[in-house]
């Protein structure tokens, strides 16, 4: 079985978010980049499928050279091979088109993406890939079992969990639950050494035009001071919520 895990390289969750060039670009200065947490759950699941289903795991990022450190980390976690499609990730559409082109050349049975990236939070790329390739698609995926060419999976929906099955190929949007936090693989020295020997291929881009463009970023306005209510004056809190905020 051939698995592709699409990796988004995102600012660490504690990063301070700032912008430069007249607020038109994200300021990467001093920012630590990590594997998008939703993708890391998916990657861990893929590594498990290597053993249980004799799978080969390829990780892929559309991005510039700076993303290679993140790809190396994926190799150390257990992916067999990495691919970087060499162009800036301009928007979800152009990223998904590049991935589609690659998937037409190399056939994958399972394409794992994250439910959403924590930088642009679109939740767009996996749906686009599935739509472009006309593959089955599930997002918010919290369980996945593969038997031969059949996949059984669950997705979190509003108010419950839906369990479905389909034939491969399948695109999933993974999240916590697919594997648990405690299952995440922390690369050891051996993994890191082995990662150096594994292939990291650089593939030229198709030069797809973006369909969206960030013109200007801004940050939410600073909050006004909190109104403190004494613990023995809760009637006041109820009154404020009822008559000032009008939310209850």
């Amino acid at each position: 079985m051939n698995i592709l895990v699409c990796i988004s390289n995102v600012p660490d969750t504690t990063s301070k978010i700032n912008f430069v060039e007249n607020d038109s670009k994200f300021d990467t200065n001093g920012v630590q980049f990590i594997i998008n947490p939703n993708d890391e759950f998916g990657l861990t699941k893929a590594v498990w499928l290597k053993e249980s289903n004799n799978a080969t795991v390829t990780v892929l990022t559309v991005g510039e050279q700076s993303v290679e450190a993140t790809l190396r980390k994926c190799l150390a976690i257990g992916a067999d091979k990495a691919i970087r499609i060499d162009c800036p990730a301009n928007d979800a559409y152009s990223v998904a088109k590049e991935i589609e082109t690659h998937c037409e050349q190399v056939k994958y049975d399972l394409i794992i993406c994250g439910r959403e990236s924590i930088d642009y939070n679109g939740g767009i790329v996996p749906g686009l890939i599935a739509g472009f390739l006309d593959y089955n698609f599930v997002t918010n995926c919290v369980n996945l079992e593969i038997e031969g060419s059949k996949a059984t999976f669950s997705r979190e929906m509003s108010g419950g969990t839906e369990i479905s099955e389909c034939q491969l190929p399948l695109v999933i949007g993974s999240q916590k639950g697919l594997v648990e936090e405690s299952d995440l693989i922390i690369p050891n020295m051996r993994g890191i050494m082995m990662a150096r020997q594994k292939p990291l291929d650089i593939v030229p881009s198709q030069g797809v035009n973006a369909k969206t463009r960030d013109i200007k970023f801004n940050k939410p306005q600073a909050k006004s001071e909190v109104k403190l209510i004494k613990a023995d004056e809760l009637d006041k809190l109820i009154d404020l919520l009822e008559n000032e905020a009008k939310v209850i």
């Binding site: 463009r213 960030d214 013109i215 801004n218 939410p220």
Partner: peptide, 9 residues
């Protein structure tokens, strides 16, 4: 943590 003014082309 931020807003983007995005052009849809």
């Amino acid at each position: 943590k931020a807003f983007s003014l995005t052009e849809i082309i």
